[in-house]
């Protein structure tokens, strides 16, 4: 079909693009094992910066915060997002289209706009609570989790809907014909069938929550810094071997998630597309 010559050029081009993808990551991982205080002056291999990372209380606290937020926001958004997908894909109701549009907005909206939205919203709510009830509350892990849920619901819903749309409704009808009530039909037929979609959505939510910098940095308070926000703050001040080590750990974590998702999605053949930065 394609001539040999064209094929060779395409192959070569692909190698170059893959090199472009992986060389920067490889250099970063390699340099994280450098013993020297200066990032680019190689003096010998060591795990010094990984040790230092494990002794750094701020890093450990940030990792803990990230994991709490990711777990909470993934759990809540998977439940709400899956329910929303079912409601939109399996039922016809008034106001369905409006909800459909609202559900797409958090995916389209730029991170920066959403960050601004959440900050102004929480400031208003805090002001109101203080005025009406007295207690002073501030930004923290709760506001971060609430914001992450707000964008994750949509991503989960999109992934689960893609799965639902490809499903044969006859299977659910067959369950109904065999006198399964709605709850049973859902638990024993629908849920197992959409499970790859639900898990795919959960992994996407987890990744997005663990990656987010902009929105989190707007709605986090003192003591509630997540790992990406902490690293971002360090990076703005300059390059250090400690950041290289933390970065490598973050890369390994995301690669583990890719492999987990590949295992779950096997046989499904589809990867959820579309994510925010």
């Amino acid at each position: 079909m394609t001539s040999r010559w064209v094929n060779r050029v395409l192959g070569l081009h692909s190698w170059v693009v893959y090199l472009f993808f992986y060389a920067p990551i490889a250099v970063l991982v390699f340099l994280s094992f450098n013993d020297n205080r200066l990032v680019t002056v190689w003096t010998g291999a060591s795990l010094r910066w990984y040790r230092e990372m494990l002794q750094n209380d701020q890093v450990l606290a940030a990792i803990r915060n990230s994991l709490i937020v990711a777990a909470v926001s993934t759990l809540v958004s998977v439940i709400l997002g899956t329910a929303a997908a079912l409601g939109l894909e399996r039922f016809r109701w008034k106001g369905r289209q409006l909800f459909d549009g609202l559900l797409y907005l958090p995916i389209i909206i730029p991170d920066v706009t959403m960050a601004v939205m959440m900050l102004l919203f929480f400031v208003q709510v805090f002001g109101f609570v203080e005025l009406a009830f007295g207690p002073r509350i501030g930004l923290g892990l709760a506001t971060i989790s609430l914001s992450h849920i707000a964008f994750n619901i949509s991503f989960v819903a999109v992934v689960v809907r893609a799965r639902l749309a490809g499903l044969d409704p006859a299977l659910e009808e067959a369950a109904a014909d065999l006198y399964a009530d709605r709850r049973r039909a859902f638990l024993h037929v629908t849920l197992p069938l959409i499970m790859p979609g639900v898990l795919g959505g959960a992994l996407l939510a987890l990744t997005l929550s663990l990656d987010d910098v902009v929105i989190t940095s707007f709605v986090s308070g003192p003591g509630s810094t997540t790992l990406p926000v902490y690293v971002f703050g360090l990076v703005k001040r300059g390059v250090t071997p400690l950041i290289n080590a933390v970065s490598t750990v973050m890369l390994v974590a995301s690669m583990l998630l890719v492999f987990v998702s590949l295992v779950f999605q096997r046989g499904d053949g589809k990867v959820p597309k579309g994510t925010r930065q």
């Binding site: 329910a83 409601g87 399996r90 039922f91 369905r96 939205m117 919203f121 707000a150 619901i153």
Partner: peptide, 30 residues
């Protein structure tokens, strides 16, 4: 059909309410 519409709204309601409170209202505030 009415029962279907009711169920659809009921199933979607938690996510709907969440997005109105934590997305639509913030957008209006901006």
């Amino acid at each position: 059909e009415r029962a279907q519409a009711r169920r659809g709204l009921l199933v979607s309601l938690p996510a709907y309410v969440y997005l109105v409170v934590f997305f639509a209202i913030p957008l209006v505030i901006v």
